[in-house]
Amino acid sequence: MGQKLHVLFVRGMLYYDGVSAVEYEWIKSLRNRVAYDYVLLDPDKSVPEKLQAVKDLGCQVYPLRYQGASSLASHRNREKVLRDFLNQHHYDVVHIDTDLLSRYDVAKVARQCGVKKVIIHSHNAMRSVHGIQKLPGVARLERHLIAKYATDLAACSKEAANWLFNPQDQGRVRIIHNGIDKDHYVFSDSRRQALRKQLGVGPDDLVLGNIGRLADQKNQLFLLDILAALLKKQPKAKLVLIGSGEKEKEIREKIASLKLTDQVILVLATDQIPDYLFAMDVFVMPSLYEGLPMTLLEAQTTGLPCVISQSISSEMDFPGMIHRQELTAPAEEWAETILEVKPVSDRQAEAAVLTEIGYDNRESAEQVYQMYIGG
């Protein structure tokens, strides 16, 4: 085996999100050919379990801290600390997984420091009404700077590519689907029953599930309204909500105000995602915007039917598994859609669909490696 490529991921933080999950799969799959490190620009928001997981795979994690009296001063200080870091460490590739237009500055600094391969990889598909509010001219300029400083453009979906890159640069974009390890998500009824018993869930309870950062994007506050509407017609409904984030306090307050304390199981962190998916009956994702959400891929692979917002791309739909609803529809209509969903007759069989539609982690990892070496 020759010398490994040295690749640096630049992220804000590591937490229970789809991007962290897919990076973890790349690190595992490519460990014989690639040595990965992390630079974190907002390290104090990271989840300790995620930090430890990548360290256990041999990654060095470098927290970079910066501040300033204004946003401009903070921006300049960020560039300085990143430049100092890159001048002290050699990397063959800087890989920037992001949904932020402002990340062009990381690519600029990397190129100025002599990094030959600088990748900006889009992992979300924000909508202008829900995403970051910027003047169109500013957004176009930042997209132009992304294309100027990045040697390679990549995206997890066409919609994610359209969000982060200007129309004239779409021809440069490499679409690399976010893959998962199929073997981890083959449905197990015994594990389903064990976890439902542990959670105090009865055999007749209808268990909804949602996994994601507790943030505006994921729209969990509206999900609580959906649950409240559903309970009027299905009193045995419960919601398993998995994630952490800045909306936790507000979500807890709304759970209390809607008197849903006995119906919501809030799990801030877990390494049992497959088991929780096995235990659920319907996965509900009313996100305001997404790229190709890993949790939706994982849910379908376990044979879990999904009720999701129209804003989510159809590129990863398993046949018959997805039921869409408009974000503008009231909670009562979402509840009706959930009640209309029929369980999948053979949940184990859905795992085979993952490979058929091109989302196996081994395939996506190989595409990433070919991008690193210029293939």
Rank of each mutant, 00 (worst) to 15 (best):
G12P: 00
M13F: 13
D17L: 00
V22A: 08
L30C: 11
R31M: 02
N32G: 09
N32K: 14
D37G: 12
D42T: 07
D42P: 00
P43C: 10
S46C: 07
E49I: 05
K50C: 12
L51C: 09
L51E: 05
V54W: 02
K55Q: 14
D56V: 03
Y62P: 06
L64F: 12
R65C: 13
Y66E: 10
G68E: 07
S71K: 14
L72G: 08
S74A: 15
N77M: 13
R78A: 08
E79I: 05
L82R: 12
R83F: 04
F85T: 08
L86F: 05
Q88A: 13
H90V: 08
Y91P: 09
V94A: 10
V94S: 09
T98A: 09
T98S: 13
L100N: 12
L101R: 10
S102C: 05
S102F: 09
A107W: 02
K108P: 04
A110S: 15
A110V: 01
R111L: 04
V115N: 08
H121V: 07
A125M: 01
M126S: 15
M126D: 13
R127Y: 04
V129S: 15
I132N: 14
P136E: 13
V138S: 11
E142G: 00
H144N: 12
H144M: 12
H144P: 00
L145G: 07
L145C: 10
Y149V: 05
T151Y: 05
K158H: 11
E159C: 06
N166F: 00
Q168C: 10
Q168E: 15
Q168A: 14
D169S: 15
R172H: 06
H177G: 11
N178F: 02
G179Y: 01
I180C: 06
F187D: 08
R191E: 12
G202I: 02
D204M: 05
D204G: 02
G209R: 01
G209Q: 00
N210G: 07
Q217C: 04
N219G: 07
N219M: 01
Q220Y: 03
I226W: 01
I226V: 15
L227R: 05
A228D: 14
K232A: 15
K232R: 15
P235F: 03
V240M: 10
L241Q: 01
G245E: 03
E246I: 00
E248P: 04
K249Y: 06
R252L: 08
S257V: 04
D262S: 14
V264F: 03
T270M: 07
Q272D: 14
P274C: 09
D275L: 06
L277P: 11
L277K: 08
L277E: 07
A279P: 08
V282S: 12
V282M: 08
V284R: 03
P286A: 06
S287Q: 05
E290K: 10
G291S: 09
G291L: 02
G291H: 03
M294E: 02
T295L: 00
L297S: 11
E298D: 10
T301M: 04
P305R: 07
V307M: 05
S309D: 04
Q310R: 10
S311L: 00
S311K: 03
R324I: 04
E326I: 00
P330G: 13
W334V: 04
T337P: 03
T337R: 15
V344D: 09
S345P: 02
R347V: 01
V353Y: 07
T355M: 02
I357V: 11
I357A: 10
Y359Q: 09
D360G: 13
E363M: 08
A365F: 01
V368L: 15
Q370M: 06
M371K: 12
